[in-house]
């Protein structure tokens, strides 16, 4: 097989240049008119102005922001209302607005649901947490014995179908002798604290 002749690179380049020239001549170059120059200059100036304006705006904003931050401590403090996170009222039993009979203690985690007088008795309703019903019953019996009250003064009802990790576990209803207001703490005047809700307070079930 005969060797192929080595390509003559000089000739190829010459040929390419000639073709390119021929093509180049077919494409008319833009006429450099004064309009074109003016238009290009205007666009350039526009871009430059845009960049300058942007830079100026950023610099001014940054200076204003830094100044505002630096002088802010001298302008006083803003006063939030904190109305969306009011302090949690104290536990009414601990506060002692309407004390429990002497000797009766609630030795388990609970929250008071309602308190009030009904048919000559004080009815105090609680939810208890964490413990099982038998344990709460045992602790209540001890406390009732200590207070000299019958054991049936307390009913202990666990919630049905409790999940295993449930924190709140059931309801305790205590039927006790009537109690009088025994504290002049102003919080004791607030039904939201004592849980002695007036009957005209609307249930918290409307959308608002």
């Amino acid at each position: 097989m005969a060797d192929l002749a080595a390509p003559d690179e000089g000739r190829i380049e010459h040929r390419l240049r000639r073709d390119l020239h021929a093509v180049d001549e077919l494409i008319p170059g833009p006429a450099v008119t004064s309009d074109l120059v003016a238009d290009t200059r205007r666009r350039g100036a526009g871009l430059l102005a845009h960049r300058r304006v942007t830079t100026a705006v950023v610099v001014v904003l940054a200076v204003l922001a830094v100044t505002a931050v630096l002088v802010s401590p001298a302008l006083g403090r803003a006063q939030p209302s904190s109305s969306y996170r009011p302090d949690l009222p104290a536990d009414p039993i601990e506060l002692g607005c309407y004390p429990l009979p002497r000797g009766l203690t609630l030795d388990f985690p609970y929250q008071v649901r309602s308190d009030g007088d009904l048919g000559g008795r004080r009815v105090l309703t609680l939810h208890w947490d964490e413990l099982d019903a038998a344990e709460v019953r045992r602790r209540l019996d001890t406390a009732l014995d200590r207070a000299g009250l019958p054991r049936d003064a307390a009913t202990v009802t666990p919630f049905p179908d409790l999940p295993r990790d449930a924190v709140v576990r059931g309801t305790v209803v205590l039927r006790l002798p009537l109690a009088r207001l025994a504290s002049d703490d102003p919080e004791c005047q607030d039904p939201a604290t004592t849980k002695r809700f007036p009957p005209d307070w609307a249930p918290s079930t409307t959308y608002g």
Binding site: Q111, H127, E130, F197, W201, P203, S204, G208
Partner: peptide, 28 residues
């Protein structure tokens, strides 16, 4: 609130108050 929440409030605030009471009693 495993029953009605405390009256006199809204469907948003009353449950949070109850949850805060449970948290206070239990540490959860």
């Amino acid at each position: 609130c495993f029953g009605p929440c405390d009256p006199g409030s809204t469907v948003w605030f009353a449950p949070v108050r109850y949850a805060r009471e449970v948290a206070r009693a239990t540490g959860h």
